[in-house]
């Protein structure tokens, strides 16, 4: 179910403002790709164009192509709702539905497909998803309790369980650990390592150690100045980016000289 992402010359606009310019990259299946770069460089914006979540923001639009195993997400007639069922997303702050139980949170996306699912299938899906998110042992005795009662790290893993319950091809993560303590962060990073077996994972992070720990490839984004569009500066194996990058700006950034 893991798929290849192919981005061709993508521009992102907010109304008339060009926010990200000319991004082309190929992301291989069953890999973890990290997006790094200073704040405002457009990495989160670009991430959102990979499942058309940028369209939630009024005025946001793209030019260019994003192919997932050859199918253009932006071809005419493509329903963004179906795109998002294929490309799941985990956000900066954990956002389980507060009025729903842990179980219902996991099933929320599946129930949208309005397939009638026998209770036993639901049970096994809940267990499989929660195990997949390394949360099962912590919550198996309280599936009926509200998801908002969990700790921050547990809530974030619940959101991951919810995202993988709909069996997406790709999992996007927008700074998933930025609101978590180091131990919860470690739990999520371990999880990413496991999820890589089944999914194509793209993660935005401000934490460069995290990028080196979890990712196979790293993309460095930067802006020339405020008001200028963000660009993809360098995209390579993570080891290369952090040891001998080919662009000076990348080296300055990863060595902590700016940003």
């Amino acid at each position: 179910m893991s798929k290849r992402i192919n981005v061709r010359d993508l521009d992102v606009y907010y109304s008339d403002f060009l926010a990200v310019e000319g991004v082309s990259m190929t992301i291989e299946p069953r890999t973890v790709t990290a997006f790094i770069g200073p704040s405002g460089c457009g990495k989160s914006t670009f991430l959102r164009t990979l499942n058309r979540m940028h369209e939630v923001i009024p005025g946001a639009r793209v030019r260019g192509e994003v192919l997932i195993d050859g199918d253009n997400l932006y071809a005419p007639g493509v329903d963004p709702v179906l795109v998002r069922r294929q490309v799941g997303m985990v956000f900066q702050r954990a956002n389980p539905f507060p009025t729903m139980s842990i179980r219902d949170n996991v099933l929320a996306g599946v129930k949208l497909n309005s397939r009638r699912m026998p209770k036993s299938d639901q049970d096994s899906l809940v267990e499989r998803s929660l195990r997949g998110a390394n949360l099962w042992n912590e919550v198996k005795d309280r599936l009926q309790l509200p998801g908002s009662g969990l700790s921050g790290g547990q809530q974030q893993r619940l959101c991951i369980a919810r995202a993988i319950a709909v069996s997406p091809d790709v999992l996007l993560m927008d700074e998933p650990c930025s609101a978590l303590d180091p131990i919860s962060t470690l739990a999520i990073e371990d999880l990413i390592e496991e999820l890589k077996q089944d999914y194509t994972i793209v993660i935005v992070t401000h934490n460069m150690q995290q990028a080196t720990r979890v990712s196979d490839k790293t993309a460095f984004f930067n802006i020339a100045g405020s008001g200028k569009p963000g660009r993809l500066i360098e995209y390579d194996d993570t080891a290369t980016i952090f040891t001998k990058p080919s662009v000076q700006a990348t080296e300055d950034y990863v060595s902590g000289r700016f940003g």
Partner: peptide, 13 residues
């Protein structure tokens, strides 16, 4: 909260 709306949309609602 935008957070919850986006959670729903990102699940493909």
């Amino acid at each position: 909260p935008k957070l919850h709306e986006e959670a729903a949309l990102a699940l493909g609602s």
